[in-house]
Amino acid sequence: MSRSIGRRHLAAMTLMAIGMTACGGEHDGGAPTAKAAVSQGTAQNARVLSQQQLEDAVVDAHDLPGVQVNEIGVGTKGVGNGVIHAVRRATDPSLCAPVSAAVDGASGYTPVGSVQRIAGTKSHSAILTLVSYRSADASRVMKELRAGLKSCKGYEAAGPGAMKVTFENVEATKAPPQGDEGLAFRLKWVAEPGEDGLRVPSSVAVIRHRSTLAIYKAISDSPRTPASIPSDLVNAQSKVLDAAVQTTS
């Protein structure tokens, strides 16, 4: 393995490891999209998936032939299995807090249940996070993220211990069409500051299925190649979640 490839691999693995917590907070947002506005009333009265129902809703080979789903931190210590909690650590600037939280699949609201896995096929994969929220919290998370993406261009956040994590080039992108509403963006994690430092491209998509959010995060292994979220994974997982939130009583 060359030194440059090794650095990129280490950076990507480090980014996955630190992506267990994020900053959260509330910000005033602009008007939601037409699709989101129509569905917010449904979200406020949506049935909430329990922890077990959420775990049962994780995509598997029956839903997507050839998919591999692995727990995060298997065989390691200190990483855990990706359980999501409400997070409230600060970002600089503060308006980027919802973006920082979304990178890690979290928000400033306490989930009812959550599950985080690495999922994909042999050719591509992503970090998959499913989070169920109470009542209208899911819509609030989307509203705050939408507002943050309008102004956030880059930020610094507190990482594990005294570590500082820096992201730059935050840019909203076209969201997948699934679910009740969706948001997507890309950014670069600055692993090595400086003009010639290592920057790891990442892409994030957040899709709301009633009161459950599905968050997909992909990490590129090349600083010159944008990260791509697997569309087949999004399609398959969306179908499973849609069925789960419609049949839950």
Rank of each mutant, 00 (worst) to 15 (best):
I229K: 01
T247Y: 07
M142R: 06
I118S: 15
Q68Y: 13
Y216L: 10
G25P: 00
G120P: 07
V99A: 02
A158G: 11
P98A: 11
V99S: 00
E195C: 08
P98D: 07
E195R: 15
G78E: 05
G154D: 13
V131T: 08
M142D: 01
R7P: 02
H124P: 03
V67R: 01
A138W: 04
A101G: 15
G82I: 04
R224Q: 14
K77P: 03
K35S: 11
V190C: 04
L64W: 02
S123W: 12
W189H: 15
Q178T: 08
H9N: 12
S4D: 15
G154Q: 08
A97R: 15
A172G: 00
K188V: 11
G24Q: 03
L54A: 02
H27Q: 14
K188D: 13
R117S: 06
A34W: 05
D242S: 09
A205K: 04
G108H: 07
I118Y: 08
E144R: 10
P32S: 12
Q40K: 11
T76F: 13
L128R: 02
L145G: 00
D92R: 03
P201E: 01
G73N: 03
V240I: 09
I229M: 06
G73H: 05
S203I: 05
A138N: 13
A106F: 07
R8D: 10
D56S: 09
A119E: 02
G113P: 05
I5A: 15
G148Q: 12
I72S: 13
L183E: 12
E144N: 15
D137N: 15
G6R: 09
S114D: 09
R8G: 08
M142V: 10
N45T: 14
P201H: 00
A36Q: 07
N81T: 06
S139P: 01
I72H: 07
N169M: 12
H85K: 11
V58N: 02
W189V: 00
S228F: 10
V240P: 01
A184Q: 08
R199F: 05
P176D: 14
E195A: 14
A138S: 12
Y133W: 00
A22R: 15
T129R: 03
I215G: 08
E55S: 13
S203W: 04
S132T: 12
D232Q: 14
V131M: 00
R3W: 09
G66Q: 07
V69G: 12
A31R: 15
P93N: 07
D242A: 07
P32Y: 09
V165F: 03
W189C: 04
A157T: 07
E181L: 07
S123T: 10
S203H: 05
A86S: 14
K77M: 13
V170L: 08
L198E: 12
A106P: 05
G161E: 00
A36S: 10
T21C: 03
A34E: 12
G179E: 04
H9I: 11
H62S: 14
T76K: 09
A243C: 03
E168C: 02
A86F: 05
C96Q: 06
V67T: 08
G19C: 03
Q44M: 09
A11F: 01
P193T: 03
G25W: 04
G105A: 15
L187E: 02
T42D: 07
A227D: 00
R208D: 05
T76Y: 12
S39V: 06
A191K: 11
A243T: 09
Q51Y: 00
G24T: 02
A101L: 06
G30V: 03
G182W: 01
T225W: 05
